Amino acid sequence: MTPRHHLDPATLVSRAAGALSPEMMAVVDTHLEGCPYCRQQLARAERVGGVLLNQRQPAGAGDTRHDQLRQDMLARLQDTTPVAPSPRESSTNRPAVDALPRPLQPYFGRRWSDLRWRWVAPGVHMIRAPEVSGHTLILLKIAPGKSMPIHSHGGSELTQILKGAYDDELGHFGPGDIADLDCEVEHQPVTSPGVPCICVAALDGPLVFRGWLARKLQPVVGL
């Protein structure tokens, strides 16, 4: 299935610059495995970054020079027309049925059948990866037709849909789609009927729940 929700250009620039945490990188690379469009955009970001670095004179400006380079890369990335992937590219690297996406295997193991889910709430199970850089990386399995608590984010969140689907204020997210969210987004995902929604999420800050019950349970869940 061709993804309909893609990585933000700023995330692609950070990926090209090697500026993402390992947890964020795992989710980004999982999306890139199945998204020819974002792979093309990443390649463009890497080419643009190389050209801009060659064009700029060495200077002692430090952070100012880095920030300007980032802004130039973003401007050039946003001034593009999406290119449809070729049929040959779309059909390559199809994973085995029981294999987890390769970027997630160092954190969760190789096979779906080996996962050991932990109950955290009615209809919600989770697996938390060991911390590498202080950010959170989790697998979530949410029962069909379940409404999650309304929440915003204390930082950035990347959520890649692996199986199933959900709907929220931003639209419908199915397998292969990624939600690239910041602290300005408040939403309430509702999983689709039929099969559980399984996703992998990386967070660099805690969730911010509106409801008092969710806030009370937050220390127990650890999100």
Rank of each mutant, 00 (worst) to 15 (best):
M1P: 07
T2G: 09
L7S: 07
D8L: 12
A10F: 07
V13K: 05
V13I: 10
R15I: 04
R15N: 03
L20R: 00
E23A: 12
E33A: 10
Q40A: 14
Q41I: 03
Q41N: 11
R47K: 11
G50T: 06
L52M: 10
N54E: 15
Q57V: 11
A59Y: 00
G62Y: 04
D63E: 15
R65I: 02
D72L: 14
L74Q: 07
A75C: 01
D79I: 03
S86W: 09
V97Y: 10
A99N: 10
P103D: 07
P106T: 01
R110A: 12
S113V: 00
R116F: 01
R118M: 09
W119K: 13
W119A: 14
P122S: 05
G123S: 02
H125V: 07
I127S: 06
S133C: 09
H135S: 02
L137C: 08
I142L: 01
G145D: 14
G145C: 12
S147Y: 12
H153I: 01
E157I: 06
E157F: 05
G171F: 01
H172V: 11
H172G: 00
C183V: 11
V185T: 12
P189N: 06
P196Y: 08
A202I: 04
G205S: 06
L207G: 11
R210C: 08
R210F: 13
W212E: 07
K216L: 15
L217T: 02
G222P: 13
